[in-house]
């Protein structure tokens, strides 16, 4: 886990400001930005992947066992693309 920037001393800075832990920005939860939340209706879902493919934040993933798509609300910014683009109207945006 990376230290918050205001706690890092100059000695702890990697030479040249290199970051050696790939993708560590995932510790930053952009879900706090959200005012609206997508609600998924698995019965209406036609399993077409469009929500997954069009999500700029890559927060939607398939749960193959349960045969549903799931949202990672730690990161979902509530942009509403998934709901707007869903051809089956299986996703609606609700107040969070």
């Amino acid at each position: 886990m990376t230290k918050p920037m205001e706690q890092i001393s100059w000695q702890e800075i990697e030479a040249g400001g290199v970051i050696t832990e790939p993708g560590n920005a995932s510790c930053y939860h952009t879900g706090t930005w959200r005012s609206q939340k997508p609600k998924y209706d698995e019965n209406a879902c036609i399993r077409c992947w469009r929500c997954y493919v069009m999500c700029p934040d890559a927060v939607i993933s398939p749960d193959l066992e349960k045969n549903i798509f799931v949202w990672n609300y730690d990161y979902c910014k509530g942009c509403g693309i998934c709901a707007y683009e869903c051809p089956a109207k299986a996703i609606v945006m609700e107040e969070d």
Binding site: P22, G23, A25, S26, C27, Y28, H29, T30, W33, C45, I46, R47, W49, V53, P56, D57, A58, V59, P62, L64, N67, I68, F69, N72, D74, Y75, K77, G78, C79, G80, I81
Partner: peptide, 28 residues
């Protein structure tokens, strides 16, 4: 209906969530 894998489509994410693009950024 069953979720079928998309052909020739990587499931890996090479830019991880937690990036600070605006809501609905089609660039990212």
């Amino acid at each position: 209906k069953v979720i079928k894998p998309i052909k020739n489509f990587s499931m890996e994410e090479y830019i991880s969530s937690g990036h600070r693009a605006c809501q609905g950024c089609a660039e990212v």
